[in-house]
Amino acid sequence: MSSEITSPTRPCATDLAAATLAHLRDPVVRANLALRRSIVREVRAQLEGEGFEEYETPVLGERINEYSAGLIRAQSAAGDEWWLTQSPQLFKQMLIASGRTRYLQFAHCFRDEPREPGRYDRMREFIQIDIEMVTDDPAEIRRLVERVMVRVCRAAGRAISTPFPEMDAATAVAHYGTDTPDLRTDPDEWSFVWITDFPLAEPDGSGRPRLVRHPMARPEQPPRDADHACSLRTYSYDLVLNGYEIGSGDLRIHDAAEQLAVLRAMDLPAEQYQVLLDVLADGCPPHGGVGLGLDRLAMALAGSRDIAQASAFPHWFGRVLPEEAP
């Protein structure tokens, strides 16, 4: 005889299997997954045609706090501690420093973000269309992404116009109350907008300065201290579609002294970033990139409000159960 241990907040294995099979058989999900495959195909074709090389990077590594969302810890049977990567940022900067000028990856990323009632557009594990290239011009990266989006949207059955409108983050918040504005005039539109020039840091609820971007985002000048960091903007840009952030990027810091200045100003442990500092000190060209959320992009193009409907195996474990979906 076997018994099954369950908890009040987690479905038993039988319920999980039934929910997953029902999800995979859902005709809406099947159509969305077909759309998702076409997105992958068109992105890869466009970027390979522009000279990008596809690489795979590790998902296990040393602890690096890139984003405010929590890290997820992994542990070996021997007790060794590792961390699931929030993004491939360190690895792709190594690739750039080694002489690769255009990098592409469909990368697994992990962020332990708290659940928010009524929000169904993110998962703890997601696929990021990760792009990095040698450039000192953020507009060059934005134009590249627009060419990708034109091809993706054409494959999805709709033509779009470029260049996308641009708006700095301060203006977006002042006019729309958010840095992810929905600029549609018709509910059936696909409305893209670039939100640019995010601050390096800003005070949190307690008045303590915190990073707005990740620590490798390049500011307009090296910060002297935390207060100075709050006055600086970064060479950054988010791509917003119908009120959803589907991509985020920036120019990266390529100078070791400037990177150390950001870490010290924000009171971040330099030893946690020592490998990156060593890579930059060895010499690294100006570069930047962007991460496009494949799951969220497929969700938005499909006209869904639930990211689970654009994933074959969404996070039933502790994320969104079918009866909780919008």
Rank of each mutant, 00 (worst) to 15 (best):
T135L: 01
A74C: 12
G205Q: 11
P222N: 00
W316A: 05
R25I: 02
G79H: 13
S2H: 13
L268C: 04
A265S: 07
R30Y: 02
C109F: 02
L90D: 12
W194P: 06
N65I: 05
Y67T: 12
H108W: 11
A308E: 02
R184Y: 12
E56S: 10
A45K: 13
C12A: 14
L301R: 00
E53W: 10
Y244M: 13
L84H: 02
L263Y: 00
R208D: 10
L297R: 02
V279W: 03
G118V: 01
A45R: 14
A229E: 03
Y103E: 00
A74P: 11
D182T: 06
C284F: 00
Q272K: 11
M94V: 13
D255W: 02
A261S: 15
G293R: 04
P11W: 03
F192G: 08
L297W: 01
A17G: 10
G205P: 06
W82I: 01
A312I: 11
F126W: 06
T57R: 09
R147G: 14
V290M: 15
W83F: 15
C109N: 07
E245W: 05
A257R: 09
D136W: 07
R142P: 02
Q221N: 08
A170T: 07
S7W: 07
A308Y: 08
G157D: 04
L239F: 01
E42H: 14
Q272W: 07
S231K: 09
A17W: 12
F164L: 10
S7C: 06
A226K: 04
E166W: 11
A78K: 13
H23S: 05
Q105E: 15
V148L: 06
T20Y: 05
G157P: 06
A13W: 11
Q93C: 09
Q75R: 14
D250A: 15
R36T: 02
Q221I: 00
M266E: 09
P203S: 08
Y176V: 03
L263H: 04
A170P: 00
H287S: 08
A201K: 07
Y244T: 08
K92N: 00
I253K: 03
T57N: 11
G291T: 03
D168N: 15
D136Y: 06
R154A: 15
G247W: 01
A17Q: 13
P181N: 05
G243Q: 09
L21E: 13
E146S: 06
L292D: 05
F164N: 09
V28F: 05
E116Y: 09
P285I: 03
Y244F: 14
C12H: 14
D227Q: 13
S236A: 15
G70R: 15
C284K: 00
A156G: 05
D255M: 03
